Simulated scan of single mutants.
Amino acid sequence: MKDLDLVNQQQSDTAVEEARRAIVRVGTSLFDRGYVHASAGNISARVDDCYLITPTDAALGFLRPHRLALVDDGGEQLAGDRASKTLTLHRRIYAADPTARFVIHTHSTHLVALTLAGVWSPDDVLPPLTPYYVMKVGHVPLIPYHRPGDPRVADLVTARIADRAASGTPIRAVLLDRLGPVVWGPDPAAALAVLEELEETARLWLTTGRQPEPLPADAIEELREAFGADW
């Protein structure tokens, strides 16, 4: 039994270290490509019954693996620098969507600008302009403004997750008014794909004067049938 416990602990330690490297890699990539600036934004990963999250006021382009906050399932910090003030939101997303293993929040320029200029609708911040937006992103609701770290935001986000799951069109992202997107997925690559497609679609819509028409209903239905798109 002791040998089995040791093996399990070693596997858990390995998973935590892999998650540390993934968070640093994603943070660097986001910074290098202009998706984040200064100390805005945060990243987390769920590993077994624990969470890793970037520290409060950390610059995502200059993260250090050992300084990431390690938090247990009850929210108690076990190691690293003080956890981001959005920890509650991240933990609630993981609880609301069992498929979520990686969460990214940025203050991406075009998505924040979209909230300032006016979203397409509160239930869909952008129209379904392109097939890849429909397939990779899906519906994205707007979450009304609350101060950064306000725990009430977690209630609003998890309610949206539950509503969409019940309707058969689960969501992968929300847009916080004036604060930017929060996206999630089963792994870093999936979460990044959602963020990148979401920001790019916001850029397209804003730079075309918010004039393009959405994809027609028959085109969206074809994407549902061909690719299982959640729309």
Rank of each mutant, 00 (worst) to 15 (best):
V103L: 06
T115K: 07
T99R: 14
T115L: 06
L89G: 00
L89H: 01
A69R: 10
T86C: 13
T99A: 15
F102L: 05
I104P: 03
A113R: 13
S84H: 08
D73C: 11
R101E: 11
T115A: 10
L111C: 12
P128I: 01
A117F: 01
R101Q: 13
S108M: 09
I93S: 03
K85F: 03
I93Y: 02
L78W: 06
V71M: 05
A117M: 13
H105S: 04
T109P: 00
G118K: 09
P98D: 11
H105I: 03
T86Y: 03
L126I: 01
R82G: 01
H110D: 14
H90T: 05
I104Y: 06
A100W: 06
F102V: 05
A100P: 06
D123A: 13
A117K: 01
A96W: 10
L89S: 02
L78F: 05
A100M: 06
D123I: 02
P128H: 07
Q77A: 13
I104G: 06
A117S: 10
D124Q: 14
L78M: 15
D97K: 08
L89I: 02
P128G: 01
L87E: 00
L126A: 06
R82T: 14
L116R: 13
T88D: 07
V119Q: 00
D73M: 10
A69M: 11
I104L: 12
G118T: 10
A96L: 08
I104R: 06
L116V: 14
L78H: 04
L78P: 02
L126K: 01
S84Y: 02
R92Q: 15
T86H: 09
E76H: 15
T115E: 08
P128S: 11
T109K: 10
A113W: 08
T115N: 08
G80M: 13
P128R: 03
R101H: 14
L70T: 12
T99C: 04
A113I: 07
H107I: 03
D72C: 11
V112Q: 07
G74A: 14
G75M: 11
V125E: 00
P127T: 09
K85V: 13
S121N: 10
G75C: 11
L111Q: 08
P128M: 12
L116F: 14
R91F: 02
A95E: 15
